[in-house]
Design a protein around this nucleic acid. Sequence first.
DNA 1: GTATGTGCAAAGGCTTTGCACACGT
DNA 2: ACGTGTGCAAAGCCTTTGCACATAC
Lengths: 146, 146
Amino acid sequence: MATATDSHPSIDWTSYATTQIQAAGLRRSGARQKVIQMLGRQSCALTALDIDAKLPKVGRATVYRAIEQLEELNLIHRVDLGGNAFGYEKVDPTGDHHHHIVCDQCGKVEPFADEELEKAIHEIRRNGFRISSHEITLKGTCQNCD
Amino acid sequence: MATATDSHPSIDWTSYATTQIQAAGLRRSGARQKVIQMLGRQSCALTALDIDAKLPKVGRATVYRAIEQLEELNLIHRVDLGGNAFGYEKVDPTGDHHHHIVCDQCGKVEPFADEELEKAIHEIRRNGFRISSHEITLKGTCQNCD
DNA sequence: GTATGTGCAAAGGCTTTGCACACGT
DNA sequence: ACGTGTGCAAAGCCTTTGCACATAC
């Protein structure tokens, strides 16, 4: 299954997101496309201000509006980064996903995936709720801080 | 194991928290005690502003300072309530804990516990991190909003 | 050509801080 | 008595909103 595009996994998400944005009746506008392409290049979560800082030519309000729209369409999702901060990262169109481990001391974030955990999560049923997604954050201390 | 105090499970946490606060060299002051007693009575997470609203005689800054200290001592922890809001709830001294399911539409929060999930979580090992805690949030739509 | 999208600047909401006074030990 | 704790008000941050101009379709 490995293909030549494996080294640029973001291309898939970028074009997928662009398609979905258009399917939703939104325009393929310059500023929003810059946000999409930037997020497509990231492997892990960035805060709204991180995104804004990386795109000096895009207004901050536009960054926030783009985040809102992308989240609405389920193209990105928010993750708790500790310390009153939220990050955003792309949602893999294949359904593949990971969770995060955050260092309490320095705020360092690393992704991780665990199949047993996913199984356990998908077993959960809750009366009165239709569950659509889940977020798991592990907290601890990283080597540098320990 | 059921005892007469089961109907007031919060008493344990309240006195435990008070003891820990004093052990940390902090004083048993009026305002902070009010925050502790209030949190002890809650069964689920409250935001800083919820806490402030419930304690009109305690200054807002004091509420935030108390939250900071209680979190530092691991007597409460923060939970993601969706929509840019964080809630705080007591940490059970017996180690007992639950997670949350949040309605995307109305923000309703319900606690849940799942033993298989806890097992899976405790199996996780991650090089370069000493894991101390975890947070799990399920998201979905509740009956009223569906 | 028209409705959507954008950037700026202002407003808003939550959280933190500075400081003088109050209180616990 | 001393140092911690408190409340108020001001400042700080991040996020959202209003509005005139620009751009995609």
